[in-house]
Design a protein around this nucleic acid. Structure first.
Length: 507
RNA sequence: GGCGCGUUGGUCAAUCGGUUAAGACGCUUCCCUUUCACGGAAGAAUGACGGGUUCGAUUCCCGUACGCGCUACCA
């Protein structure tokens, strides 16, 4: 029996939850479910200066909306808590000290100003960003260069310091990435990352390995931007004596902006007019709200489906997947290596497909919310569901229901009859006057159509000549389902009322 | 600059040495429909470049170019 699969999503609560973040969650979730493992949410809030109130709750709300709820989290708890790194603070120092004791790390007393000075002093055209590495550390203020007594004094004086990893000067490090295969680094090219900050909090580098170890994480998925620091983490697993427990790494490709190149950012969404966050996010500092996919009118099924396909496919050409189907079909081997440009047109297509395929029952709550938000009263669920069935094919977003279905709930104000006014005749007026009185009591579209056509023949007018005006009267515009369906749904009374109104507009 | 990762149509992408190089989005045209859609049909459009390896490379290897990422006491 092999170890139970455990994966984790470890966001830092600093703002809205980005598309790419949700995709990372999704791949974690799919992998865990597929292997009957655990999916953990761990909050990486070690940077107290970047703490944003509400962000953690927001992240959990997003996961709930997407249907990707963790088995263990700050909210649900679990056997490996706490699930906020700020609450695990006491853990980290000892591990950092152990690394120092074992000669794999050291104390560094350099102040921010000194570090800044170092970067300036050593900056050249060839080396625009000098690193605190095996070459430079001998010139800095740390326990490697200072004498034992000096270090002891600084320590006992309580001089602020950090603990840095001591990267080997020249060692080839290899590890297998689940997506990229074998990856190779030379440790001499990596700087001596800070492990424990001056305030006693760990940096990501220390925290991620300590917590992954303590939480018995077996597979670690994260964005490709972490690849360059992977050697630090691999080394830490080794130095801490946990080499055999190290999770298998999988560095996911980035989601790129649609135009040009580079990582997709919130700004791109603002600039190009599409959401980047899962749900609306209001910055507590500025009060500024950024629209999310949910509020834009996306179904979570479509959002998740779309994200899954951004970097993965099952090889058969199938594109529409439910979450359950994704759990079955997903495989890391089929995750792309290269980044994918985000295409909002394709995202729209996914949503449209899901709306078309959804049952009126599924859509009802969303549609009612949209309708009431736009001032329409939809109190009769059976009626609303029929309306949904009639118009859902022409809705790309749930928000489209307001425009596509509003006329079923409210008489259009003064219809614009311009399009038919030019060819209007007295005979047509007679036709509609007569139609009003002959509409069937039953809500039967076929019956309405029959009466309409018979009457047209009696008045010697082509049916086609009358359909557009009829539509304009009922709908208020050149769109919507079949006119006779609309008339039947509206009922004789309301239909008559709208005909009268239309006739008035033509008079 | 250094290090790492990547590169099939405009975009997402299949192909695990041999195909007329799938499919989807978007676009164009047509059909259906006297509304808007949906649906159906068709079309334009792709292997960055140069070397190898091989009977045969989109596929394997090397180099070049290009792109991206990282290069913080942020994650």
């Amino acid at each position: 029996m092999s170890k139970k699969i455990r994966v984790r999503f470890a966001p830092s609560p600093t703002g809205g939850l980005h598309l790419g973040g949700v995709r990372t969650v999704l791949y974690n979730y799919l992998f865990a479910r597929q292997h009957l493992g655990d999916f953990i949410l761990r909050i990486e809030d070690t940077d107290q200066s970047r703490f944003v109130p509400g962000a953690e709750e927001y992240i959990m709300d997003c996961l709930r909306w997407c249907g990707l709820e963790p088995d263990e989290s700050p909210l649900t708890g679990g056997n490996y808590g706490p699930y906020r790194q700020s609450e695990r603070k006491a853990n980290y120092r000892a591990y950092a000290e152990k690394l120092v004791a074992d000669g794999h790390a050291y104390y560094a007393f350099d102040t921010p100003e000194e570090l800044e000075k170092m970067r300036e002093d050593f900056r050249t055209t060839e080396n625009p960003s000098p690193q605190y590495d095996h070459r430079l550390r001998q010139q800095m203020k740390n326990s490697l260069r200072l004498s034992k007594d000096e270090v002891a004094k600084l320590l006992s004086d309580g001089v602020p310091h950090v603990i840095r990893i001591k990267m080997p000067a020249d060692q080839t490090l290899r590890f297998t990435d689940l997506i990229r295969g074998e990856v190779e680094f030379n440790t001499g090219h990596v700087d001596d990352k800070v492990l424990l900050k001056q305030d006693g909090m760990p940096t990501y580098h220390l925290a991620v390995v300590v917590d992954d170890y303590l939480m018995q994480i077996t597979h670690a998925f994260r964005g490709e931007e972490w690849l360059p620091s992977a050697p630090v983490h691999v080394l830490l697993w080794d130095y801490l004596g946990w080499k055999d427990s190290m999770p298998q790494w999988a560095h996911l490709p980035l989601i790129l902006k649609p135009d040009g190149n580079g990582k997709l950012s919130k700004r791109d969404g603002d600039r190009l007019g599409f959401p980047v966050f899962a749900m609306n996010w209001t910055d507590p500092k500025t009060g500024e709200t950024t629209t999310g996919f949910r509020e834009r009118g996306f179904l979570p099924e479509a959002f998740v489906n779309m994200l899954a396909m951004l970097g993965w496919n099952d090889g058969t050409g199938k594109e529409i997947f439910s979450l359950e189907e994704l759990v079955q079909a997903f495989s890391l081997e089929r995750v792309h290596k290269g980044g994918a440009k985000f295409d909002f047109e394709k995202a729209k297509w996914f949503n449209h497909e899901w709306i078309k395929a959804a049952t009126p029952d599924r859509l009802l709550p969303d549609v009612k919310a949209v309708l009431s938000q736009q001032g329409f009263e939809a109190n009769d669920d059976d009626y609303t569901k029929k309306v949904i069935a009639l118009v859902k094919d022409r809705c790309t977003f749930t928000t489209d229901f307001a425009e596509q279905a509003g006329f079923f709930f409210k008489t259009p104000a003064a219809p614009d009859m311009q399009a038919v006014a030019g060819k209007w005749t007295a005979e047509k007026t007679h036709f509609f006057n007569e139609l009003m009185n002959k509409l069937p009591a039953s809500k039967d579209a076929a019956a309405v159509e029959q009466i309409f056509k018979d009457l047209a023949t009696a008045h010697n007018i082509k049916v086609g000549e009358l359909q557009l005006p009829f539509r304009l009267m009922l709908v208020g515009g050149k769109f919507g389902p079949a006119v006779f369906e609309i008339a039947a749904m509206l009922g004789a009374e309301e239909t008559g009322k709208r005909i009268r109104q239309g006739l008035q507009a033509l008079a």
